[in-house]
Amino acid sequence: MVELLTAPFEFGFMQRALLGSVLVGTICALVGTYVVLRGLAFVGDALAHAAFPGVVIAYMLKGNIHLGATVFALATALGIGLVSRRGRVSYDTAIGILFAGAFALGVLLMSTIQGYTVDLFSFLFGNVLGISGRDLLVVGAFGAMVLLAIILFYKELLLLSFDPIVAEAMGYPVQALNYLLLGLIALTIVISIQAVGIILVVALLVTPSATASLLTERFFRMMVLGVVLAALAAVIGLYLSYYLNVASGAAIVLVSTCLFFLVLGGRGLRISGKPLA
């Protein structure tokens, strides 16, 4: 039995994959709480795609991929805020414009590179088994920044998410807080791309938090539960990837999805909606 549990973690890459995916899942669930409650899943998806040109440029300049992705995700976060504020353009239209534009820029730049580009595609899908020690440090550092911001601005972000109008009436710089939140989402996405890639990153960002929202009616508990669910999905997903011989990132996401539907089903079975917690 113990052998069954420890066998997958014989080598460093699996230990790092476990640590990395639990870390990434944790950060995603923290930020995902806001994403789910404010309905920002589409923004998350957009920022993930918008990181792509950053990846390509970093690749072309032989620079740091994380840095490139961060710059572009943050710039797009800023752009979404600006465009939607400037004009008669709705929020999701602004997002649609910027996200497709940024992604097209990535595609265009990629087409200018001669040869040897095939593995830029690997950023679209990610590889949690390829996490290096240095990647873990980056994830840890970014994660610490996100966590610190959430601790420092816990009250303000909660008020902003619940009632932005009253927050503004009270004198809070609502725009700045919105940018802060978008920035946190952008950072979270950058560190998650390594694990699950651009296409699946939204799942990591929303699913555990959405599941948690079904289980509790308290904000803080939702955050904690989200973290637990994300970590659980990471661990189970990695075991499945080992024992069922399937791709790791997709396994983690699918476990998360299954947990969501299990909870949803469990709620449906109980007599109309009394909260668990």
Partner: peptide, 12 residues
């Protein structure tokens, strides 16, 4: 993408 098992078996 290699699975966790394939990678572990290769390492072994």
């Amino acid at each position: 993408e290699p699975s966790a098992r394939e990678l572990t078996q290769l390492a072994r």
